[in-house]
Nucleic acid binder design. Structure first.
Lengths: 205, 205
DNA sequence: ACCTGAACACCGTTCAAGT
DNA sequence: ACCTGAACACCGTTCAAGT
């Protein structure tokens, strides 16, 4: 039986899998061809070149991001829920999100969440420039976190001992603090804490 | 006159310049050799290979980070001043900071600022796990911002029109908000706003 | 101790040629 | 319209050989 024809979608899917598994750096046109059991040059016919392949990957990732629904009673709770949902979505494909960010599509990636954030910030009583700043502050907070977390995963922990020593010396009078800083970060917890604090700070005053 | 002997420092300096100018991806061993007017293989004698060259670059960048001094009267002001100083330091060499982050040295990079943050958070009355969370929240906030900003510079703005259309539709009843969101972000301003809000949220309650 | 060129296995991309 | 192999210029790295 003849080999089924290669489609642009086949190429994008395989590329997305490879990127998600080992990062964008590990995506080679030749390796991708091997994965698809085809000649390297066929890929060029379908997607142009490596650059536009990554562009297409970024676009597809942005388009696949679902609209977030806010949950909770107060605007504060609802904003935090949007941030958490957004982070969860992004963390499902951290490497692809990194590609999106690298290619300058970060703003577009936020469009669905932005609508929800605008609504909630408005409901909380913020208007005009202050509302815009609040929306953007939350957006930056979320992407920043995801980018930081992504690299924390890839490069587990090095020189932990060194950091712990410093912490101890600086937090001498507060052993619980020193102990807390010696433990690895609980990202989810820290994220929620930070977003809550940020939102509180943005809404009050 | 004979060519002056090549040193490890020569190699690291030239590499740092190349990375800072065009990003880590643009650093090739052969290009570096050309820049230093030497054979590629000499570089290997001095720094091992590309991987450990980047490691060394990250280490050197971390070591060069000056200790930050807090300024201002209240703990709140002093924490914000540390965050701003840190961001300023990091933004001076955004590409090298990205290398540091990629190689998992982010925590070590923060050691100097961490001492200052611990002191101020303590002065603000936080203790134990809550103090640790506050310190880390500020740290994450700063790196996150720098990482986001670095990519914003590299990939200016694309599809601005698309984003503007969405914003308008979502912020219909608040023209100033719509206008504010259509303008490009003032990163410095947004950063200060966010850090203030975060710190306020962390300290109160 | 330091530097060199040759060589290897990889890479992205182009192109002329096939069906 | 789709796929192919050959070829080009690049890359990181190793190694045996020089001084």
């Amino acid at each position: 039986m003849p080999k089924p024809a290669l489609t642009r979608e086949d190429v994008l899917d395989a590329a997305a899998r490879l990127v998600e598994r080992h990062g964008p750096g590990a995506l080679s046109m030749r390796g991708l061809a091997a994965e698809l059991d085809t000649a390297v040059t066929s890929i060029y016919w379908h997607v142009g070149n490596r650059e536009s392949l990554l562009d297409a990957l970024a676009e597809a990732t942005v388009d696949r991001l679902a609209t977030v629904r806010a949950t909770g009673r107060t605007p504060r709770q609802r904003i935090v829920s949007v941030a958490r949902a957004l982070r969860r979505d992004l963390l499902e494909h951290p490497q692809l999100i990194a590609v999106v960010h690298e290619r300058g599509l970060t703003e577009r990636m936020f469009v669905p969440a932005q609508r929800a954030l605008i609504r909630e910030v408005h409901a909380a009583g913020l208007r005009g420039a202050r509302a815009a700043a609040a929306v953007r502050a939350v957006q930056f907070q979320v992407v920043g976190y995801v980018l930081v977390e992504r690299n924390r995963e890839r490069a587990p922990v090095r020189a932990r001992g060194g950091a712990a020593r410093w912490d101890a010396s600086a937090a001498d009078h507060d052993p619980p603090l020193a102990r807390a800083l010696a433990h690895p970060v609980d990202s989810e917890r820290l994220f929620v804490t930070s977003v809550r604090a940020l939102v509180d700070g943005l809404l009050t005053r």
